[in-house]
Amino acid sequence: MTAALPAGRRRWRGRHTVLAFVLPGLLYLLLLGLYPLVNLVQMSLSDVTARNIASSAWSLVGLHNFSRVLASPSFAATVPNTLIFVAIVFVLGMAGGLAGAVALESPGWLSQVVLGLMVFIWAMPPVVLGGIWKFILLPQGLANAVAGWFGVNHASDPILWLVWRPFALLSVAVVNGWAIIPFGTLVYRAALMDVPKEILEAAAIDGASPWQQFLRIKFPILRPVTLILAVLTLVYAFRSFDFIYVMTYGGPGVSTSTVPFYSYLESFAQFRFGLGAAVAVLTVLVVAVLSVVYVRATRGAEGG
């Protein structure tokens, strides 16, 4: 195809000038994005505590930090926490997102209001959202009042949403899922808008029910979007930090600590930077796998 173009155009599509556009941003990210990662790996292989964090002459200890982390019972507890947390956020985000988009397809002022509301919630700072939910979930809060109306509990015997096992982990995860549903809704909504109207009308004339229309026409169109959204939601759930920090700070004990949060606690509450870095490196390895999936999915969608 390129060969058919005039010489001037071919040069326009050439690589070198375009590369100049990429350079500043790429350099910035190499310095403030990649270098920190290299530094992190170095720290994970060294004995770093508050004592020697200042000097960069850390003594290498090989994989010692990793073996200590993997043998630690607190770390062991954060792994199932992470799996449960990610699963809840993921399922809520995807299913809620799709359900929201389908519901918002219907016309009317109510759809408009709900859509606006959801986008606004999604835009609110996570600390604010985590804060209001923490308040709602207090023993005398709104959540227990509502549960009281349904006869689930009594005021004298409130549910301790952010204390009891497994309520604490579930509560933080569900609130986190609630916060990400609007994103899924927006993505699915845009994808549904791209479904050609003519095909739907033709199907309706052929007597296909809305459910059949959804399964046969819309669902195939949503599939590539779903794959990419799935990766994004997974990653969002996995690196989630703000809600845990604000609502429970990982507690009681480590019952709401996920692996990335545990890494933060090791580094900044215990000052065992080497161990914290080792945990962080483990999490980066997990997301690295997910990023390969993402690139493949995007590549497939763009046909590159």
Binding site: Y35, P36, P260, F261, S263, Y264, S267, A277
Partner: peptide
């Protein structure tokens, strides 16, 4: 995760 980048 953002937490991984703070110290560097």
């Amino acid at each position: 995760p953002q937490t991984a980048e703070i110290i560097p």
